[in-house]
């Protein structure tokens, strides 16, 4: 309970204000507090433009590094291009994936779902730390 709300209830108990007035004051208080508490969620997100993949590893004693920056617009365009893949090609790809031990049905993957995935990539951060490798996937 906030201090101001407690003050209003105290005034109500002391008989300084009526129940209706207390209700109006609390309602006004909530109206004032709503933008302040919601401001964190409502703040404009920084416009992310790129998906970054950074891999630092040691391979046979030699340091290796992969640093890839892909525009998110390219991912969106790729999703649109992938939506044009004919169904018979998807069936063949499904068969090949099953043979490789990856039983994924690509025909069930809708372009809208992929687009939604790309839209929310800006909130994704993946960090993998192992003794000989570090992988970071994030948007910037």
């Amino acid at each position: 309970m906030t201090e101001q709300r407690k003050d209003i209830l105290d005034m109500l108990v002391a008989g300084k204000i009526t129940a209706e007035e207390a209700e109006q004051l609390i309602a006004a208080l909530e109206r004032d507090q709503a933008p302040a508490t919601g401001s964190l969620d409502a703040r404009p997100k920084g416009k992310v433009k790129y998906l970054r993949v950074v891999v630092d590893a040691t391979d046979n004693g030699e340091p290796s590094r992969v640093n890839v920056r892909v525009p998110l617009q390219l991912l969106r365009a790729g999703v649109r291009l992938a939506a044009l893949v004919p169904p018979q090609a998807l069936v063949k790809a499904n068969a090949s994936l099953s043979d490789s031990g990856v039983p994924i049905d690509l025909t069930q993957l809708k372009p809208e779902q992929l687009e939604a995935l790309v839209e929310h990539l800006d909130e994704v951060t993946v960090e993998v730390d192992s003794p000989d490798a570090t992988v970071r996937v994030f948007c910037e």
Binding site: K49, Y50, D59, E62, P63, S64, R65, V66, N67, V68, R69, V70, P71, Q73, L74, R76, A77
Partner: peptide, 12 residues
């Protein structure tokens, strides 16, 4: 959409 893409690979 390609501008901005960058692929940097180093090994040793």
């Amino acid at each position: 959409a390609l501008p901005g893409a960058r692929f940097d690979i180093e090994q040793g």
